[in-house]
Simulated assay, not measured.
Amino acid sequence: MIHDFEYGVDSRYKNKKERESDSVALMQARLERMKAIPREQIIRAKLLQLKLKMEAYLKEPVYDNNNHFTDFLEMYIDAIYPQRSKFAEDINVTPVFLSQIINNHREPKEEFILKLMIHSEKMFKNVCEFHKKTWYQVYYQEKISDTMSSQEQWRPGIEKQVKISELSEM
């Protein structure tokens, strides 16, 4: 018995042609089934996946220079909207402003995060529980990560400015 997991089928065939034929048929059946899934169900699945990724990010101490907030923001928008400009319209910001945030050319202001929080509350309402504070937690967790991962750059200059005076009560 030959096991060739590349084709996604249990390979008990006499020849390669027979095996490949069945694997093509299986893939076509999977694609047809995927096409029949309603858009709402796909959005629900993507939102649930995003929530789980955000929760995993918040549980682990990640000290890197990646911009997780904007990665999650992109996933969120792209899961729901075919065009990002429609999301920008729905939260009353310009597409240019949204693009600048996504491309890390501008920090999101508190008002933007508040709008994102309210928007996601409404979107997740019928999907799963999504805590209001999640976007804030991701944003500030990233700020902590950035600070901790870039200590080599900022610490020498700041350390020179900090001293410990003798305390008379020690």
Rank of each mutant, 00 (worst) to 15 (best):
residue 40 E to P: 01
residue 76 Y to M: 10
residue 139 Y to V: 03
residue 43 I to F: 02
residue 135 W to G: 08
residue 1 M to T: 05
residue 61 P to M: 01
residue 31 L to M: 07
residue 125 K to M: 10
residue 161 Q to S: 08
residue 29 A to W: 06
residue 108 P to K: 01
residue 8 G to M: 06
residue 12 R to Y: 04
residue 37 I to N: 05
residue 53 K to P: 03
residue 69 F to K: 00
residue 137 Q to E: 15
residue 102 I to S: 08
residue 104 N to W: 05
residue 42 I to T: 09
residue 30 R to L: 13
residue 57 Y to H: 15
residue 2 I to K: 15
residue 119 H to P: 05
residue 153 Q to T: 07
residue 97 F to L: 11
residue 97 F to Q: 07
residue 34 M to A: 14
residue 103 N to C: 13
residue 24 V to M: 14
residue 58 L to F: 02
residue 144 I to E: 11
residue 124 F to P: 10
residue 72 F to Y: 15
residue 13 Y to K: 09
residue 10 D to S: 14
residue 38 P to R: 03
residue 68 H to T: 07
residue 57 Y to G: 12
residue 150 S to P: 05
residue 51 K to V: 01
residue 120 S to I: 00
residue 135 W to C: 04
residue 124 F to E: 13
residue 127 V to P: 06
residue 57 Y to L: 00
residue 26 L to A: 14
residue 77 I to N: 01
residue 168 S to W: 01
residue 85 S to I: 02
residue 34 M to L: 14
residue 56 A to T: 09
residue 155 R to T: 02
residue 26 L to M: 12
residue 15 N to T: 09
residue 125 K to H: 13
residue 60 E to N: 07
residue 38 P to K: 08
residue 40 E to D: 09
residue 61 P to I: 00
residue 70 T to P: 12
residue 57 Y to V: 00
residue 50 L to W: 05
residue 158 I to C: 13
residue 14 K to V: 12
residue 11 S to E: 00
residue 164 I to E: 10
residue 53 K to M: 13
residue 33 R to F: 13
residue 37 I to P: 07
residue 48 L to V: 01
residue 61 P to R: 02
residue 134 T to R: 02
residue 101 I to E: 06
residue 113 I to V: 14
